[in-house]
Amino acid sequence: MPIEVKDLTHVYMPGTPFEKKALDGVSFTLENGEFVGLIGHTGSGKSTLIMHLNGLLKPTLGSVTVDGLDLSDKNVSLRDVRKRVGLVFQYPEYQLFEETVIGDVMFGPKNLGLGAEECRARAEEALAQVGLPDAALWEKSPFELSGGQKRRVAIAGVLAMKPGTLILDEPTAGLDPRGRDEIMALMRAIHAKGTTVVMVSHSMTDVSRLCGRILVMNHARLTLDGSPADVFADAARLREAGLDLPPCAALAERLRGAGFAGIPGEAFTQEALAPAILAALGRGNV
């Protein structure tokens, strides 16, 4: 069952001089198995939005429904919601606290009220999934690990709760290219196993490589929602939101303008664009 967001509005500190509308009439539906990129500037409302999807924030107006559960309903237990929607915050490694890696990953499952064995099994599975299958490492203190490893342990901590939907707030922030590629490969693998993934990002390039659908936020509103090809086709509105096309999409747009024939809107990655250019110059299928 999907996540349904309807006319969602959120106002911080209402009635004070600091009053701020962080979300303004946002509506969309996440279908099962989607891989969605959520993009927009700092302060555009992305973080506020994702905190509504697992009940950490309550709507001022409108509603959020997860698997048919209305999150504003007092009778819906938050544990039930958090089982379904996992949220990985920015710099999640700063939330590690247990004495051992495995203990930290077990924290989430324990809070779901699962038995010790089940918790352990889930933690081991999640750690293997994030590329840390070495049992010797599980008994180490999480504070001894490298930055990239810590981040993967933190992601495992949410994966171990087996959420149907996983939301990650800028999972690659602060990582170098190698670390970023590892995390992106991990997200692809998680999605391939059937989990719905929402990735918040500043990077158009990252989003264009991974996501089947892009949501663009600007000034508390959802301004674009569609496939990468659709979203990149509306370059004007992207620029209005202060965002640029990824380089390959920008190149494709310029080439179309310069009379290159047959460069499709889908050619926004290097892999898709290179053959299209070769074909346009009569070098295709040599």
Binding site: M51, N54, L56, L78, R79, R82, G86, L87, V88, F89, P92, Y94, Q95, F107, G108, K110, N111, L112, G157, V158, M161
Partner: peptide
Amino acid sequence: DKIMKAQMARGAD
């Protein structure tokens, strides 16, 4: 506030 929210997302009470 941020850490609290992150742990609550992991089911902390």
